[in-house]
């Protein structure tokens, strides 16, 4: 796991300041059927490579972020506030 995580608001911070929620994937609509919810809640692809995740800067600015991390090398290529991610379509 990467030791230093770039927070768009606070700068480089140690990973201990963060809480990781998991994959940043689009939430199904309210009328989605059970299969779609099953996929959303329980199923993950676990790819080798670039992965978008929700990170919470718990001991810092307390903002939810979308951190783009390589699951093979643990290098972080990008991070942005979740509101920005929603606007640019990275997260929903």
């Amino acid at each position: 796991m990467a030791s230093l995580v770039p927070c768009p608001h606070c700068g480089m911070r140690p990973k201990e300041e963060f809480t990781i929620k998991g994959a940043a994937i689009a939430r199904p609509g309210s009328h989605a059927d059970a299969n779609e919810w099953m996929d959303y809640v329980y199923l993950r692809n676990n790819p080798l490579g670039t992965y978008d995740e929700y990170w919470h800067h718990t001991s810092g600015c307390r903002r939810w972020l979308v951190v783009t991390r390589d699951t093979g090398t643990h290098e972080i290529s990008a991070s942005c506030d979740v509101t920005v991610a929603v606007k640019t379509g990275v997260a929903a």
């Binding site: 606070c10 700068g11 480089m12 911070r13 718990t58 001991s59 810092g60 600015c61 307390r62």
Partner: peptide, 24 residues
């Protein structure tokens, strides 16, 4: 803390929330 506290990165008047040991 893992925050850079050098005066270049953390000038006078700047403030931030961070962990010091295990305490925010």
């Amino acid at each position: 803390t893992g925050t850079d506290v050098s005066v270049e990165a953390f000038p006078v008047g700047h403030s931030t929330m961070t962990l010091i040991g295990h305490i925010a």
